[in-house]
Design a protein around this nucleic acid. Structure first.
Lengths: 355, 355
DNA sequence: CTGAAAGCGCTTACAG
DNA sequence: CTGAAAGCGCTTACAG
């Protein structure tokens, strides 16, 4: 896509016409709307209408343009279109990570839905650190997206402020808050923690522990967990907090540490199914029977756990529904609906094998 | 991002100048380079240089611009910048799916690497059907990306032709071919199939079967598998082919079908680890011991299988390396290196528990 | 239903 | 080291 500035075309054999220089470096590779217009015998604006409002063009004109577009293989330049119309048709999705993650199916469905509606998704991976979030946001906003999907709500205040100020439709997901920037599709991590504590208490756990990554959402679950246990008079809770990403190996390593803190440990709430699998593996090695001697609850409900590790309890969240709902919120707003929707998709505790 | 046409700012108290209508809908929300230039007392081009070639600007000028940029919170409009410079700084990644998929970590690393180099990733999910690939490519090309990452090589001929013609740097990944469009980072699915067949043969399998999705790459593995077995005189191979996405449930359902076709079945090559987990589950239900009575090999080496299902053999591919290498290929090319690189990252058969 | 003119917000290509 | 002019490829806002 070289820039062809129309400077003098002075061909060697027509020296005196002093033609205003033309440019030919690389040749005319990328077609413009004027190329199509010329061949179809219409004005550029008519070609524009062919793409953007075909219903306003006469059928025969439409057909003539269509043929030229097809013959030439013309694809409109949306950088130009976006600049001119102030509609980028771009939606930014800001996600910590898509690798082995619960978010990937949310993004999958979100992206499919947006693309069906004529939008494209700009993927921005924020990582779990907030370090470069300012730069990331700059990069995102420089594309002039028409909407933003955020994963999680716990962003630095300065970011929240900037996002609020740009006045773009924004959906926060995978979390719950009383003070969303704009729209919200998620669930309460705090409530999940409390529900898991409740679950353990109902199974007569006396000494529950916790292994978790120390990201904001995991910490919210931890707080719900601890608060509910405190209500039941349990205040000393064995705890291992690790930096993300969590893994099976981290889970395996955590169990001995928990047992040091609480030799009577009889339940563990893990920040992810991978951690839970690790804790389960370590339990086996230590001769602890799960769930009879030790209850283990994960988070995320990975597809395979039902088959491979039915001893584990886990928390299921519908990532697909989040993605779909988030897309709809954004599309409704873009279609002019000024509602500010907040959706709690809830969660389920999934228990497969009891003692 | 409303369109503010700079027509005469006729203030109400100068009515006779017959000012050509002015526009103010929404107010002047988005800052332009001229706003910064005016406040900093420089020309717009100097602000442009502040962002794009700061080394060509005097230190004090730089500082003055920096302060205004920060104070105003100005973020350049890349739609305009891209149009003007013919550099979109956008890279398109075309992937069948990122949900519970092997590709997600490739995209993760690819995206991180490209973004560190100043590019952003446009995510295009193609699904496993080739139906709307033309439309997808139109959408992608309309953004004028500077490079394209493709997952897999087996695209419709018309697409390959178009991609070749656009003259963009392109990396195909996760597969191998003698006729790449441009660059290539992958491995041979056919060789994997042959290697798994070899593996089964060395363990004295007599009646190997196959459960697989019927997408192009899975079929290439199947062909390698069948060809190698044919060399060993084994021609009747029990086979279940299913449409993607594959799952544990599909694997469970497949085993009885395989056993109908081949009651002596003693090995199964599965198109994915999820299928393998399903076949393993079905084996247990049927009282078949794995791997002593039935060898099962998956594909993908999901992180948790080592812990939960060590009876399974699998094929490991380094998706992270693919993403990183693909990003480097593209970046080298964008930096002017005209090499056409083809990288075979290979694979490993991972066997954990032998009989 | 169609089109000519002007402008979107930048950067290129010169010029000093 | 800095800037004025022109242009990138579209669409808006009119006008007919």
């Amino acid at each position: 896509m070289p820039n062809h500035k129309p400077t003098a075309a002075a061909s060697p054999d027509t020296p005196e016409t002093a033609a205003p220089a033309k440019r030919l470096r690389g040749g005319p590779k990328v077609l413009r709307i004027t190329d199509v217009a010329a061949q179809a015998g219409v004005a550029p604006i008519t070609v524009s209408r062919f793409f953007n409002s075909p219903e306003t063009v006469a059928p025969e004109t439409l057909e003539r343009v269509r043929q030229v577009v097809q013959k030439l293989g013309y694809v409109p330049n949306r950088l130009a279109g976006g600049l001119s119309s102030a509609r980028s048709r771009l939606i930014a999705a800001i996600v910590p990570t898509i690798a082995h993650s619960l978010f990937s199916e949310t993004i999958q469905v979100f992206s499919e839905t947006m693309s069906r509606a004529g939008y494209q998704v700009l993927l921005a991976l924020s990582g779990y650190s907030n370090s470069s979030e300012e730069a990331l946001l700059d990069a995102v906003l420089s594309r002039r997206p028409e909407g933003v999907l955020l994963t999680g709500v716990a962003h630095a205040d300065s970011l929240r402020e900037r996002l609020r100020n740009v006045g773009l439709p924004i959906v926060e997901t995978w979390d719950m808050t009383d003070t969303p920037i704009d729209m919200l599709v998620g669930f309460s991590h705090y409530q999940i923690g409390a529900a898991v504590a409740e679950h353990f208490l109902q199974r007569n756990a006396r000494a529950p522990g916790l292994v978790s990554a120390n990201d904001d959402r995991a910490l919210a679950r931890r707080n719900g967990f601890r608060d509910r246990l405190a209500q039941a008079g349990i205040h000393d809770i064995a705890e291992v907090l690790v930096p993300p990403p969590s893994s099976v190996a981290v889970g395996k390593a955590a169990l001995p540490t928990l047992l040091e803190q609480a030799p009577q440990l009889d339940a563990v709430f893990c920040g992810s199914d991978l951690l839970a699998i690790g804790v389960l593996g370590a339990s086996k090695q230590l001769g602890l029977s799960v769930p009879s001697q030790l209850s283990i609850c994960g988070f995320g409900d990975l597809e395979f756990t039902a088959e491979t590790t039915p001893q584990l309890t886990t928390v299921r969240v519908d990532g697909t529904r989040i993605g779909l709902t988030a897309a709809r919120c954004l599309l409704d707003r873009l279609a002019g609906d000024s509602n500010v929707k907040v959706t709690d998709v809830g969660f389920h505790i999934v228990e497969r094998e009891t003692t």
